[in-house]
Amino acid sequence: MIKLVIQRLALGCLLLLAASALIFFGIEILPGDAAQAVLGRSATAEALANLRAEMGLGRPAIVRYFEWLGGVVRGDLGVALTNGVDITSALADRFSKTLFLAFWAALISVPLAIFLGLLAVRFRDRWPDKMISAITLTLISVPEFIVGYVIMFFVAVKWQLLNPLSIVTANMGVFERLEAILLPVLVLTFVVLAQMMRMTRAAILNVMESAYIETAELKGLSRFEIIARHAFPNSIAPVVNVVMLNMAYLIVGVVVVEVVFNYPGMGQYLVDHVTKRDVPVVQAAGLIFAAVYILFNMFADIISILANPRLRHPK
């Protein structure tokens, strides 16, 4: 078990290294550089040259990459090329906001999706099942920015119940923050609900064909009890995989929702810096995103192993 974790971690580090190289040289290929992006159209040749020299863009790409890598190994992410802000502290702030949003969205959507999945199995092929599928599939089929705008229009503009923008500042209390992120949490829940619900439903239905379910039925257990106590624990592995995938999505893939509700998370931060060719920031953010995916995947694997006696005690 421990050996497996260590193996996966080592592999993860290699993946991170590969990802950082890909990101770095990917940005190098893009037209223009940070100096040009910062000065914009009004750049004169002299100003460009001066800024390039200050940013150190004159040196070969490979040298800059290894310098950056050396810094990361020492735990120093450097400063942003564009505005000289310390990347570690800026990222920590943005990342904590992203986590805050993702945490609440997951806290609502994961239990809700699993419960709806169980409910759908209980009433399989009857109207509650069909309704749950229809509603969640409709919500996932509409692009998230449209869902966002529609909710914003009714809740914020028409009925004026909440503010349309999720502005979160340092001096806000927890409840104020929760109120501010209510709308994006709602939209994110809609976006991730369907896949988790459908997976729960499918995995349980798969198990429901087994002989021990028949035994449980003959024993006289109620239908919901059978699903919750016997079928669900045995279908946990595929469900956990999908849950982890969606949680990773909640952290790295929410840029559209961030833009719609103007929420200051990682997504917008990354996009801004890509347009400005701010390599160190993009690298750092890319590393974090890659790490999130790798960690969640590892987590899902470990839970699958723990949930499966045959994998837990290999012969």
Partner: peptide, 13 residues
């Protein structure tokens, strides 16, 4: 985002 901007003004935020 222009839609968010106009919504923010309309709602008084």
């Amino acid at each position: 985002d222009e839609t968010s901007r106009t919504a923010a003004l309309q709602s008084g935020q």
